[in-house]
């Protein structure tokens, strides 16, 4: 196991914001705090070479967990072992073996070309000038940075910048790569490109990838294993295949029509049916999307149609329902 976590707990104290001037003065003196348990009793283990997705709604504790694993935060309770090391005791030794990309926190110098940042990072990771040069040449080829490596970072597009950012986190050839929301704000084409790169990296160098994302696409395309976390604890842990089959197998279809809806297919349930508009849910295990679409178009005059996956919050609600149903069955 490259990563082993047992009984991890972490909470934050957050000052209670009081209203008005008198309230502010009072809170200055008394200092009321609300405790937020960001991670509770979390346990998990990850074998080498895994591509793991870590998903959950905002504030579920994904980032906190990553920060605990990488040694940024001190745990309140529990044990973490990463590559056999204790992150907060052996932070420096560990940092030589892990790479991190945190969505909004850049490692690149804004006013300088990325090549300068790479050379600086080389020094930070105790690499010789020659080693750094060779590694940058490799990354330049993998990430296709040739055209803009020598331009100031502020002049790069978001897609170019995130490629540089990921390359920067790999300069010291880490064994584990942590990606926290790497695709935030990117367009579809760039996203697909980044996914391909990460996938190639994992296949070629066997690097373990730990990914958090809101984007179901990222997760589906990249990861073999998925962990869903909510309110600081694991609510689901399984393979991508299973996840797809049992959780990401539904699509919501909103249609606007010129008459009443006329559709009766197995696996398609009608959630809402009003004159001129309807909301359907298709279960992809039982219904074929192509058939659903064709039937819809054949039987109805459609003005507008919108197909969307089930939002993450509902996926998690499903997980909870499944679990309680399962427990009841036992």
């Amino acid at each position: 196991m490259i990563l082993d976590i047992k009984g991890l707990n972490k909470s934050f104290k957050s000052p209670v914001k009081a209203e008005g001037l008198s309230g502010r003065v009072k809170s200055l003196i008394k200092g009321e705090y609300r405790e937020i348990r960001a991670v509770r009793d979390l346990s998990l283990s990850v074998p080498r070479g895994e591509m793991l997705a870590f998903i959950g709604p905002n504030g579920a504790g994904k980032s906190t967990t990553i920060k605990l694993i990488t040694g940024i935060l001190y745990p309140d309770e529990g044990s973490i072992s990463v590559l056999g090391m204790d992150p907060h005791r052996q932070r420096k030794a560990l940092s030589l073996k892990i790479g991190t990309v945190f969505g909004q926190k850049s490692q690149l110098w804004y006013h300088l070309p990325a090549s300068d940042s790479f050379s600086l990072l080389g020094s930070i990771y105790n690499m010789s000038a020659g080693e750094t040069e060779r590694r940058v040449a490799e990354l330049k080829e993998i990430f296709e940075l040739g055209d803009f490596l020598d331009q100031p970072v502020r002049k790069l597009s978001l897609g170019q910048r995130i490629r540089c950012e990921i390359a920067a986190s790999l300069i010291h050839s880490p064994e584990i790569l942590f990606l926290d929301e790497p695709s935030i704000g990117l367009d579809v084409v760039v996203k697909a490109r980044i996914r391909d790169l990460i996938k190639r990296l994992n296949e070629e160098s066997g690097i373990t990838v730990f990914l958090t994302s809101h984007d179901a696409g990222d997760i589906e395309k990249l990861c073999r294993r998925v962990i869903v976390i909510n309110e600081g604890t694991t609510v689901w842990d399984g393979s991508m295949k299973e996840m797809k089959y049992s959780l990401l197998n539904r699509r919501i279809i909103d249609v606007k029509l010129e008459e009443e809806l006329n559709l009766d297919l197995p696996g398609v349930s009608i959630l809402k049916n009003r004159p001129y508009s309807a909301k359907l849910e298709a279960d992809l295990n039982r219904a074929d999307m192509k058939e659903v679409m064709e039937t819809l178009i054949r039987n109805n005059t459609i003005q507008d149609i919108n197909v969307s996956p089930i939002p993450m919050e509902e996926v998690i609600a499903h997980i909870y329902e499944g679990r309680t149903a399962g427990e009841a069955a036992e």
Binding site: K67, T70, G71, I72, R91, K92, A93, S95, L96, I98, T100, F102, K105, S106, Q107, I124, Y125, N126
Partner: peptide, 8 residues
């Protein structure tokens, strides 16, 4: 975070 993740 950025500084904590560097081995210096």
């Amino acid at each position: 975070d950025v500084y904590l993740l560097q081995p210096v």
